[in-house]
Structure formats: C-alpha cells, structure tokens
Design a binder for these strands. Structure first.
Lengths: 154, 154
DNA sequence: CCCCGGTTGTTGAGGGCTCAACTACCGCGC
DNA sequence: GCGCGGTAGTTGAGCCCTCAACAACCGGGG
C-alpha cells in the first residue's frame, strides 16, 4: 500500500532536491574558493563568534551546527591545525572540552563573511519575492518541527 | 557595502539550512539502513530505470542526477561492483560509455523504492499543506532557474 | 562509598566527493 | 587527411563524513 508520489508531487520533490543541492553546492564552492574552508567549518566559526567569550562546549556547538559529535571533533581538530580554534578543558566537567575562537580565526571569519553573505543574498533572497521568503520560512520551520522537535524554531 | 541579512532573513536562512539538512540526512540514513546505498546511488538507479532500455550515456546520467562526471564515474564503478549496473561501449561514439541497469539492480530498486517514497511523503509532504507544497515548488523552480538555467524546469 | 547507566568527546577505518590531470576520441576547418 | 580545440570519461590524491568502538567521567540509588 505504498503512497506513491503523483506527477505534481514528483515534480515538486525533484525541483526541491535539485535546487537545494545546487544552492548549497554553489555556496560551498564559493566559500572553498574564497576562504579555503567548507561551509560546515564556516558555520562553526560563526557560532563561536556569537558565543560569550567566543567559547562553546563541544556538544553545544555540535547541536548548534546540526553536526554529530564525531564530525565536530574531526572538524575542530582541523580548525585547530589552522590555528583558528583552540581547545580548552572545561572547568566544571572534566569530561568536557571548550572550543575557543582564536583572534586569527575571528579575522578569517571577518574576511570571509561579506562574500558568503553576498552569495546567500544573490542566490537565495534576491531570487524570491518577500512573500516567498515568508513562505520558505514557514515551510522550513514546519519541517524542522517534525524532524528535529528539540531544536528551538528560532 | 555588504548587504547583511536582517534578523528575519537570518532566521529564514538558518531554518532553511537546518531543515533541508535534517531532511536529506534523514532520508539518506534511512536509505543506507534499509537498502545499503546512499541517496545519490538510489537516484542513479531511478533515472536508469526510467530510461529507454534502462540505459543512459554517462554524461546524460550525470546531468540528470546533478552530479559531476567524476562523481558519477566513481559511483558507477561501485554500482558495477555490486552488480546493479553494467557499462557498455557506446556504438555511435567511441569515447562514450553507456550505463545499463541490470535485472539485479532493478530488483534492488523495486525493493528500496516503497520505503524511500514513504520517507519522502512522511517527512516532507505530510508536514505541509497543499498550498505550501505549491509554494515550495515555485520557490524551488525560481532558485533552479537562477542557479542552473540549462536544466528544464520539469 | 561504590556501582552503574548515561554522557562527553575522541579515534580509526572505510566510503563518497572534489579537484586537477590525463587519455582517447570527435569533427570542423583548412 | 591533418591539426586542433573541444568533449567524454577515468583516475588518484586528499578531504570530509559516518559509524562503531572506546576511554573517561558524571551523578543518583542502594
């Protein structure tokens, strides 16, 4: 009793699939070209830059970037090699680690941000009407509510 | 003169980012669990199954799955190891290769499809109103039109 | 005080992807 | 019929991610 997709749904699904892929691939490629880092790493730097003391627990950071602990661990290892992030022991939990954005990391982020934001704007927001932007937000939040009920919606 | 995102746009962007990631990750994981293949490989099998003779040129197939030639080449190599796809020389162009879906590959696809379609339906379509589905299609096609103008919209 | 189930973070193996370089071939133009 | 720019597809190195296993630690219950 499979509930197959009808032609209209299939068209929607494929358009969504290909357009999101094209968008994320494009942004990833731009970031790799202009700032020598994948988008996932950029997100880590952004979250750290917004946190008090530019510091976050590894697990919070994993949550914030919708990344697995393992992935984050590997990523922070690389960011540490680049000198953009530093690890510190957590003073209140001896299992814990804190990731700290270094000054150098902050500068790299400041240099990368305008280009990336321009990419997001030109490839996404500039292509949609204000109404569509609202629709996209509502759609995304509906999906998030189902797939990741723990995450606050904004 | 960076055109930064305002709070509303940032909220939209992050919701879109996290929800699409959550959706695609979930579907990928389900497919990996139930059919031992990543979504990209599933798509290749689908496209081949829809083609005349269940056969396509490598470059067409790359286009259809929005994949690079290199990626497709690696992927087909693996699918060939699994016995799901076979390569054939192209009779009209000696540079060309044809990918052919094998009977075994077709059976694997038939077994995987219902579960995957149910995933797409439950995680995506069931979460949206019919109106939102139309909106999502229009939004996706607007983005596609900008990012990949060569691709037919449906 | 000491288990012990749960949590935190890391590790290594293996798989998929990108990028650049490369081979082989097409077909147009002279 | 030869050259030559462009196209088809492959390859290997390197990077990132997943998954499962693991060590270290937390904190409540007996």
């Amino acid at each position: 009793m499979t509930r197959w997709l009808n032609a209209e749904e299939q068209r929607t699904w494929r358009a969504f699939l290909h357009s999101s892929r094209a968008l994320f691939d494009t942004l990833d490629r731009e970031l790799q070209r202009d700032a020598q880092m994948p988008h996932a790493y950029y997100e880590i730097l952004v979250r750290l830059s917004e946190a008090p003391e530019r510091t976050m627990r590894m697990s919070e950071l994993a949550e914030a970037t919708s990344s697995s602990r393992s992935r984050l661990s590997h990523a922070v290892a690389r960011l540490e090699e680049s000198g953009w992030v530093r690890r510190k022991d957590c003073p209140t939990d001896r299992r814990g680690q804190l990731a700290v954005l270094t000054e150098k990391g902050f500068e790299v982020l400041v240099a990368a941000a305008p280009g990336h934001v321009e990419g997001v704007r030109s490839h996404l927001f500039d292509q949609l009407t204000p109404q569509q932007v609202r629709q996209l937000r509502d759609i995304s939040e509906a999906l998030l509510g189902h797939l990741d009920p723990e995450r606050p919606l904004y």
